[in-house]
């Protein structure tokens, strides 16, 4: 048991952290939502109703979509784009999908390679891009969910303010949808750009996200 916890501590810590912060968001969001309701002369709602409300759902999904977009872009873009000196980049002569030998697929696959890495055709093609594809798919679904729940949350607010509701298609071109979307995208892109550049010059001893402390600033594709 102790061994299991140690060998999976990264996933477990972030998974538990996710659940705790989602719970915290639910508590704070519920209080904030009820403050707005009472201010508008409405009746406050219970935590269960808030948990299934479009207001909570849009706040959750707008953040999910941007996080998955960040990783989807990062996974795909780093196949081709490089950054001299960054441990986030591949070595400068390895831009592109690389050879089958480098990627250990087909006849170069070791005995313990995943089955689809040894296979040919569409299975290898799909498995070779499966990380980015799943990240991209979750991004698109989360963004779709944001647009749907955002429409409902926006319309609830419209009706409370004695204004007409709008359709999903109208919401897709609304300021509310793009403000929610872009404010998340800009922060994700800033965080990635910062990590790429700062990791050229700064170090975190023992972290695989950093170069070894003594590595040169010009060393590229080296992780500690």
């Amino acid at each position: 048991m102790r061994r299991f916890l140690r060998e999976n501590s990264l996933s477990l810590a972030f998974g538990i952290g996710f659940l705790l912060t989602l719970f915290g968001q639910m508590i704070a969001g519920h209080a904030d939502f009820n403050n707005r309701l009472v201010s508008d002369g409405m009746e406050p709602i219970g935590i269960g109703s808030y948990l299934t409300s479009s207001d909570f759902a849009v706040d959750v999904t707008e953040n999910w979509q941007s996080e998955y977009l960040q990783f989807f872009l990062y996974v795909f873009v780093t196949v081709w784009l490089l950054q001299r000196g960054s441990p986030e980049s591949k070595e400068l002569d390895k831009a592109g999908p690389e050879s089958d030998k480098d990627q250990l697929v087909g006849e170069h696959a070791p005995a313990d390679a995943p089955g689809w890495a040894r296979a040919g055709g569409w299975r290898r093609a799909v498995y070779s891009r499966s990380l980015g594809l799943v990240m991209g798919a979750v991004f698109l679904l989360s963004w779709l969910a944001q647009s749907v729940t955002g429409t409902a949350a926006y319309n609830e607010q419209q009706l409370r303010g004695l204004q007409a509701p709008i359709s999903w298609a109208q919401y897709l071109t609304s300021a509310d949808f793009w403000n929610r979307t872009l404010q998340n995208w800009q922060s994700e892109l800033l965080a990635v750009a910062s990590m790429v550049v700062l990791s050229i010059y700064l170090r975190q001893r023992g972290s695989p996200e950093s170069k070894p402390v003594g590595a040169a600033h010009t060393a590229t594709g080296v992780e500690g």
Binding site: S54, A57, T61, L144, A145, V148, T151, A152, A153, N155
Partner: peptide, 22 residues
């Protein structure tokens, strides 16, 4: 309707409860 979107898309695909629509 938005209500059907919620049931069809979110519940079926993501199993995320949304409470939106009527």
């Amino acid at each position: 309707s938005i209500s059907r979107w919620c049931r069809g898309v979110l519940v079926a695909v993501l199993a995320v409860t949304t409470g939106c629509g009527a």
